[in-house]
Simulated scan of single mutants.
Amino acid sequence: MKEQKICLPIYKVAYSICFVILLSLIRGISSVDSIGIAIVPSMALLAIVFCSDTYWIEYREKRWELFKIYSIRKRTQMIFHRLSIQGIYLCVLSLLGYWCFFWQKPFYNTESSIVFIYIPFVMATILSMAFWSVLSMTLVNCFQNIWAGIGISVILWSSLYSAAGKKLLGKWNVFSYVFKDEDQFSWLCGQGVEVLLILLMLFICPIIIKKRG
């Protein structure tokens, strides 16, 4: 409960809920298939801002001297715990936000089951939230500056979520779910890249903490 209060303060919960509601109101969609395409990149941006201070909050709240007493292992465990709490929250928010778009009465092919549309979205959402959350937190820790971490993450997001990013990386783009074509399974390559990068960043997390304080 203590960690939950630290990483999910009321103001974060409030602005994240407002973000999802506004997204469903202003982001037009034409079909059920396009709901996930609208949510995943937008929620990735939210994850960048939402999770950037996962570790840096100790500086901001002036608890750093006490936090530094803990061992590297203890600090790493606390960071992973906070990331898990925030990641689960963002995933649940995204999955619930999916249904907010139905007020627009999007076209739906009744011959296909909505389950086969929703399940890939769930998978893409979970991995996207994990990737962008960990990336933002890692960059902030590396540069020891929250705005540098957010800024670089947003630049990377803009580069990957673009025509150039789609053309350059193709199915290996972390936004492969958004750019998927007729091949219904090629986008899984991009998801595999996300998993590998997430594991790599989590692996180097204690190293960064040790080197950068």
Rank of each mutant, 00 (worst) to 15 (best):
K171T: 13
E58Q: 13
E194R: 11
S133F: 00
G190A: 00
L135N: 08
F107N: 11
I21C: 00
S159H: 12
S24K: 08
A14R: 08
K180F: 08
A47N: 05
K167V: 11
E194L: 07
P106Q: 09
I72F: 11
L22W: 05
L196M: 12
R75W: 04
I57P: 01
I48K: 04
L23G: 12
W187C: 01
L127T: 07
S31D: 08
V174H: 04
D183K: 15
I117W: 07
D53Q: 05
L168D: 07
K171P: 11
T110C: 08
F143L: 10
L95G: 02
R212W: 09
D183H: 14
Y15D: 03
I198Q: 08
F107I: 12
I29S: 06
Q77Y: 15
T54Q: 06
I126L: 09
L93A: 10
I152H: 04
E3G: 02
Q104R: 10
V13N: 00
V154G: 00
I198D: 07
N145R: 07
I207Q: 13
K171N: 14
I48L: 00
D181L: 10
L135I: 09
R75L: 02
C7E: 09
I207D: 14
I152S: 02
I21W: 03
A38V: 03
A163R: 15
I21Y: 02
I114C: 06
L25I: 10
F143C: 06
M78G: 15
V115N: 11
L168C: 10
L25E: 08
K62N: 15
I17S: 00
Q104D: 06
I117L: 12
F121L: 03
F116T: 14
K180I: 09
V195K: 04
A124N: 04
G190L: 02
S52Q: 11
K167D: 15
V40S: 00
S52P: 03
W147P: 01
N145C: 04
R212A: 07
W187S: 04
A148L: 10
C189H: 15
C7L: 05
I69R: 13
D33C: 10
T125G: 03
S153Y: 02
W64P: 01
I57E: 12
I114G: 03
V92F: 11
R73N: 13
K5V: 12
I114E: 10
F143Y: 13
K68Y: 15
I39Y: 03
V13M: 03
Y70R: 15
K171Y: 12
A14W: 10
W157R: 05
C100M: 14
F143I: 06
V49C: 03
R73K: 14
W99T: 01
A47P: 02
I37W: 10
F185K: 15
M43F: 06
P206I: 08
I114F: 12
E61L: 09
R63E: 11
K210M: 07
